[in-house]
Write a protein that binds this DNA or RNA. Structure first.
Length: 626
RNA sequence: GGGCGUGUGGCCAAGCGGAUACGGCGAGCGGUUCCUAACCGCUAGAUCGCGGGUUCGAAUCCCGUCACGCCCGCCA
């Protein structure tokens, strides 16, 4: 069991270990790596030594397990950390309660910066923070950038989506851009230098089919496009092409296959004219897909083309190096490498008998290029790519790369109740349609609520548009990003577009409430930046809210380190619940005395920054009114 | 057949070695002269797929089993 207070996972710790250290407890901007570093949420007994000073645990060899917030809080509203004492190890033989006592006794509260007291409760050791911790949290969250961790000086490339440019982006794959974008955001917030890449498969058979079909069929043979957009226009050729290949007569198929093969050979040979033909199709479709993804919004720093690695010779280089391996062999004219030492039964073919490369061969060159340009590489992939990704990693390792720098994040596909979505078969729900429907339904909600609106802020038509878009798109993203990627999702309109609790609007509403309070305060000449005595904030609801704010940087750190953006979504939901309790119980502008008004206003401002940035990580807009 | 993943109240779902399993939807009841009710409170509903095991302690780890999904191409 690891020490919770220390960095743990591969995310590393910030300068001086401050970020992660204080982060487990809450806030990386406060604490200075001092006292909080000694506060641990650790089952005592394993790995944590209580020496004379009893405050410096060993670094864990595994990632910490106790990451969550304290579920229970002290009646006084102070932070309690549960520390179950037990397991075997240093205290073998001692009962958990005894160990807890020893640990509690060994902690010198006076020597810490933020600890008020330490208590035991059966096998648990609870640590309580003092007012200084709350005050410093409030202070740190005054910054609109609250939650952004210190720069780590480490570059990461996040490759996501990378859907073949065969047609409009559909919902079956929508998890990829949404999760990928959120992971990239989380890494950025955690202090990494992030680039977002879309890897374009422009060298495969699919694209050759597409190009042949585009050049062969006439528009008059095709149905009307579903939408006046280039990707919808061109996908008709792709579908028609596949249909002919599957159902056409022998002669037609033969001719087509000859043309397709010639296109593939042209690409492999680096033939300029072929590149131009294929490029025209790809550029057109990709531009359409890019526009759809931008609505999420998911944007990319670079579209990396597969053919690039053929043209620059690096794919050949990889193949040549693979050939020299002991495990490689020429079988029936095709080169393959035996990866059984990595647990893969079947050999990986890296050169066809006609000498052309395969997808994985090019991807090997692609990844070595990533290693040359970045410290780490993260790839978001559908679960059907697991085997291929594993073989890729094994081959990369065999070629002498440090594959610890490579991490994959897999997600299950979104399916329809009646089965899979397919571009080719045209059975998919397109992302554009989902977003349109989401915005339309959101608009309906906005208009329905317009009548019984208490707030007198006269929403304009533009405001209604804005809110409908923010809420509609946000709901779609939240629905997807809030779930563990490994779990399968069955797409149902009503479920995906539920604006009730536990959805984006629920959280967005909290932000709008914060903004409403701050702006109204401004009208009364009250700014949220007065010096605040945190002792003024003494009710449980206020304390809980400060603690929720304090947790945010740790949530970022963990979501980034573990590539689990859904944790940020869970956090936003819990945060919203905590804020709403505060909202219900603690009037801000109408508070009894001036000191309370100012202190609560500062708290609202801090909450606003927190929820705005948490939503930002998820790629969801934070409306100032709704 | 083998590999990987998933299985938590009627439905969705968090938690993934620790204190009475977080929430939502749906069901029932209640709350708005007061900073936005896209909100809040209360009630009912869970042998955490099933069977073993490890542990002071298991939804969480191990073994087995069942169900569902994905994968096992000189496709991508």
């Amino acid at each position: 069991m690891g020490g919770v207070g220390t960095g743990g996972g591969r995310g590393g710790v910030g300068a001086g270990g401050r970020a992660a250290v204080a982060g487990r407890f809450g806030n990386p901007f406060i604490g200075g790596g001092g006292s909080l570093a000694r506060v641990q949420t650790v089952p005592v007994g394993r790995g944590v030594g209580v020496d004379g000073r009893a405050r410096r645990p060993r670094l864990p060899d595994r990632r910490p397990r106790h990451r969550g917030p304290p579920r229970r809080r002290g009646r006084d509203g102070r932070l309690k950390r549960r520390v179950p004492a037990g397991e075997r190890g240093a205290w073998a033989g001692a009962s958990p309660p005894q160990v807890a006592e020893e640990v509690a006794d060994a902690v010198d509260v006076d020597a810490t910066e933020y600890l008020a007291r330490v208590e035991t409760s059966g096998p648990y050791v609870n640590f309580f923070v003092d007012d200084a911790y709350l005050a410093d949290t409030l202070d740190a969250a005054r910054d609109a950038e609250y939650g952004r961790l210190p720069r780590k000086g480490e570059s990461v490339v996040v490759e996501h989506t990378s859907a073949n440019p065969t047609g409009p982006v559909h919902v079956g794959r929508a998890r990829n851009p949404i999760v990928g974008d959120a992971v990239a955001n989380a890494l950025e917030y955690a202090g990494h230098d992030v680039d977002r890449h879309y890897y374009v498969n422009d060298a495969g058979r699919q694209m050759a089919i597409f190009t042949w079909a585009y050049e062969t069929f006439d528009e008059s043979e095709l149905p009307e496009p579903a939408r006046e957009k280039d990707d919808y226009d061109l996908v008709r050729y792709y579908r028609k092409g596949n249909e002919v290949l599957e159902e056409g007569d022998e002669e037609t198929v033969e001719t087509a296959e000859a043309e397709i093969a010639s296109i593939l050979r042209g690409l492999e040979a680096g033939d300029g004219a072929t590149y131009e033909r294929v490029g025209e199709v790809i550029d057109t479709v990709l531009a359409g897909m890019e526009a759809s993804l931008a609505r999420l919004p998911a944007e990319f720093d670079e579209f990396v083309r597969e053919t690039r690695f053929i043209r620059d010779g690096s794919c050949d280089d990889v193949a040549e190096r693979l050939k020299t391996l002991e495990e490689s062999a020429l079988e029936e004219g095709a080169w393959q490498v035996d990866l059984s030492e990595y647990g893969y039964e079947k050999s990986l073919v890296f050169l066809r008998s006609d000498g052309t490369s395969l997808y994985t061969t090019r991807d090997l060159a692609h990844h070595e290029w990533k290693f040359d340009n970045y410290d780490r590489a993260v790839t978001v992939l559908g679960e059907d790519h697991k085997l291929q990704a594993g073989q890729l990693q094994a081959a990369l390792d065999r070629l002498g790369n440090d594959t610890d720098r490579l991490e994959d994040l897999f997600y299950s596909y979104v399916n329809l109740p009646e089965g899979k979505m397919s571009t080719r078969a045209g059975t998919a729900v397109n992302l554009d349609d989902l977003l349109d429907e989401a915005v339309a339904r959101a608009r309906g909600e906005v208009e329905r609520r317009l009548d019984d609106r208490i707030r007198d802020d006269d929403l304009t038509e533009a405001d209604v548009d804005r809110i409908a878009r923010q809420v509609g798109v946000g709901a779609v993203r939240y629905d997807i990003v809030s779930k563990q990627p490994s779990k399968a999702i069955t797409f149902e309109w009503d479920r995906a577009l539920d604006f009730e609790a536990q959805s984006a609007p629920y959280v967005q509403y909290v932000h709008a409430r914060c903004c409403g309070i701050v702006s109204e305060a401004g009208e009364e000449g009250l700014a949220p930046d007065a010096a605040v005595d945190s002792a003024t904030l003494s009710t449980p609801a206020e304390r809980d809210l400060i603690q929720a704010i304090a947790r945010f940087p740790a949530v970022i750190e963990e979501a980034a380190a573990d590539l689990e953006p859904h944790r940020v979504a869970t956090y936003t939901r819990e945060f919203a619940e905590t804020f709403n309790a505060f909202y219900r119980e603690c009037p801000v502008l109408t508070a009894d005395d001036e000191a309370t008004r100012e202190a609560r206003l500062a708290l609202v401002a801090a909450a606003r920054h927190t929820v705005a940035n948490a939503l930002d990580v998820l790629g969801i807009e934070a409306p100032e009114s709704m």
